[in-house]
């Protein structure tokens, strides 16, 4: 087993360029269980934890730049700006694992693992985030929804490093709601989850961004629901219809954690309740 520990951005980019097959680890909260159950065997690693620690910042347009190395725990602890302007991000981070896991797990890991049930990724999605991917050849920015291509699959090239996550500033006055279901209150893999941003002005829906977790191969942007609701006025009938669209738009599977039918019902009812709350 090879184990590299780059100390700088340059060292890292060189390392992944030379060893594109090595697995990058930071918190290792997903890698360890995989090694233990034999899903990862005889692998080589690049450890990211010796790199300079970067801080999140807001750019001139107000967008939030999160270093890939920021932990779920740090995000969950909030900080005024994040709590106020990107509450779904904070909520999503709060639902990740347990305190021990949150203290190690990074946002880049959460995204690159590309699990449809990743709570931080679900929370991020309604903000139309982009990821910054860097390699020796340079950097590129990709919308998150293009980055996530399937369960455990991303558009990341083998020599690319997820350097940053960029969250545009959501519209002023947006209503946000994060919901999740599972068998217990903490340390639970989402059976279904929802993150919603909605802005209602003069009765009309001016902005809507809706994501569901654990009900499709990737965290799902519910475009059909969004298209249906955009520009409409919320009424009991519209809410019911939107909820019905959500019920059909999610594409869950049956597994040992729950049935597809249950997941659909919960997504439908999460949305209906959130829209009712937003309408008030």
């Amino acid at each position: 087993m090879a184990f590299l520990r780059p100390q700088s951005r340059e060292e890292l980019l060189n390392a992944i360029h030379e060893h594109p097959g090595y697995i990058m680890v930071a918190g290792a909260t997903d890698v360890w269980p995989k090694i233990r159950r034999g899903a990862i065997k005889d692998a080589d690693f690049i450890d990211l934890t010796a790199m300079p620690r970067l801080e999140p910042y807001c750019d001139a347009q107000g967008a939030l730049h999160l270093p890939g190395s920021i932990t779920a725990g740090r995000i969950a602890a909030g900080g005024d700006k994040m709590c106020k302007k990107w509450p779904l991000l904070v909520e999503g981070a709060r639902h990740v694992g347990s305190p021990q896991i949150r203290n190690r797990a990074t946002i880049a890991g959460n995204i690159c693992t590309a699990s449809p049930c990743a709570d931080m990724t679900t929370g991020l999605t309604p903000y139309n985030p982009e990821v910054k991917l860097s390699s020796l050849a340079g950097s590129r920015q990709l919308p998150l929804r293009e980055f996530l291509t399937g369960p455990g699959r991303t558009a990341r090239a083998a020599d690319e490093w997820l350097e940053e996550v960029i969250l545009p500033l959501p519209p002023e006055g947006v209503f946000s709601k994060f919901c999740k279901t599972g068998r217990r209150n903490a340390l639970i893999i989402a059976v279904a989850s929802m993150a919603l941003n909605i802005l209602i002005k003069k009765g009309k829906i001016e902005h809507i961004a809706l994501a569901f977790g654990s009900v499709a191969p990737t965290v799902l942007r519910a475009q059909k629901v969004e298209e249906f609701l955009l520009g409409k006025e919320l009424s009991a009938a519209i809410i019911e219809e939107a909820a019905a669209i959500a019920y059909n738009e999610v594409k869950p599977i049956n597994d040992q954690r729950a049935t597809a039918e249950y997941r659909r019902q919960v997504c439908r009812d999460f949305l209906a309740a959130a829209l009712e709350e937003a309408a008030q």
Partner: peptide
């Protein structure tokens, strides 16, 4: 048994 692990055999935590 399909869930012989504590990821899927769910027992209460302090939060419950």
């Amino acid at each position: 048994m399909l869930n012989p692990n504590f990821t899927d055999y769910i027992i209460p935590t302090i939060q419950d």
